[in-house]
Simulated assay, not measured.
Amino acid sequence: MATLLRKIGLIRLHNRDTEDPKHHHHHHHHRGSSQQGSSSLRGKSHPKSKPQGSSPSKESHCSSSASPARHKPPKQQPPAPQPQAAPEEKKGPPAGSKEAPSGGKAVPPSRQAHCTQVRTRRLMKELQDIARLSDRFISVELVDESLFDWNVKLHQVDKDSVLWQDMKETSTEYILLNLTFPDNFPFAPPFMRVLSPRLENGYVLDGGAICMELLTPRGWSSAYTVEAVMRQFAASLVKGQGRICRKAGKSKKSFSRKEAEATFKSLVKTHEKYGWVTPPVSDG
């Protein structure tokens, strides 16, 4: 799945070149053809350029109405590296370069290195921002010290929800998710799945896969932060009447990544064919 997403992501990155001058401003100077395309976008401050013919009605679907960017101004990475990030920056690229061959064919090495650097810088900043959250909404642990593989603990959902009741009654302190970030993050979405506890409904499907449009290449915007995505996820869990599964046999069976990837792949296919019908997430 990761390689599939990466491929989709890479193709998308190429599209972005000609369509969104903000993402790769250093490219569009060379392309006469892109001048016309990009100039029309320049007036719009909104980072979500949605080239793939998505209809305006998309706003009524599952990811968009609470544009996660409202929590923070859109995070387009500034080109200058943050000074605090410098010491650990060295750790990042080797981890990324191991994966390079799988998607490397379509992308020149210099571009690959640039992607890794953008991803590294962006994720360092997000980690710092999450550590500073005053409401301790989520916390993050790196898996095997990889900057690109996070276990995220969601500590809070709406206190009036049955899910919060369930968490209290079962002494579940947090909902644990795993997020992996592809080479071309933030221009492609992370792959996200629930690890524990076993949930039912709440748009959580087999293997812990999550039915949220903004986690798909088409619904994703590079301005979304992990914090914003997690707030959206917490809201959609409650909206979809998510519950902690207490059926003895079922709740013991743990979610698996393979199953989650397969489920996510098929749900994206279905939704791209029939549209996203999950309800909009309100500002509430």
Rank of each mutant, 00 (worst) to 15 (best):
E99S: 10
Q82V: 05
H61D: 08
N15W: 13
H46N: 11
R70F: 15
S34G: 00
S64I: 05
P108K: 04
P217M: 09
H25W: 12
R16H: 14
Q128H: 13
K44A: 12
S161N: 01
Q156G: 01
A66H: 14
D20I: 07
Y224W: 07
S196W: 05
K159L: 11
R198D: 01
S97V: 12
D149H: 15
L10F: 12
R119T: 02
G284S: 11
G242I: 02
S266V: 09
A235W: 04
G96F: 15
V118S: 07
A262Q: 04
A235R: 09
S251Q: 10
A234I: 00
K159A: 14
P280T: 05
V268F: 08
A260T: 03
F185C: 06
K125E: 15
K22Y: 07
S45E: 13
Q77A: 12
S236H: 15
K168F: 04
D149W: 13
K58P: 00
H29I: 07
I11S: 13
L147R: 04
P197K: 05
A234G: 02
H23C: 06
L127A: 07
N201T: 00
K7R: 12
V268C: 09
E145S: 14
L179P: 01
M167E: 01
K250A: 08
A234H: 02
Y224M: 08
P186H: 03
S55W: 05
H114C: 04
P279Q: 06
P197Q: 07
E173V: 04
P83K: 05
T170R: 09
E213H: 11
V238L: 02
S39H: 05
S102F: 15
F181P: 02
V152H: 00
P189A: 06
R193M: 12
I130H: 03
S171L: 12
P94E: 10
H14T: 11
Q232S: 15
E173T: 07
S222Q: 10
R31P: 00
L4Y: 14
P47S: 10
C245Q: 04
R42Q: 13
K153M: 06
V268T: 03
T172C: 13
I244E: 00
Q165M: 09
A209F: 07
H155C: 01
K168D: 10
S254H: 03
D144Q: 13
T172R: 00
R6T: 11
H71M: 06
D183F: 15
A113V: 08
K258E: 11
L133I: 09
L179K: 03
R42E: 10
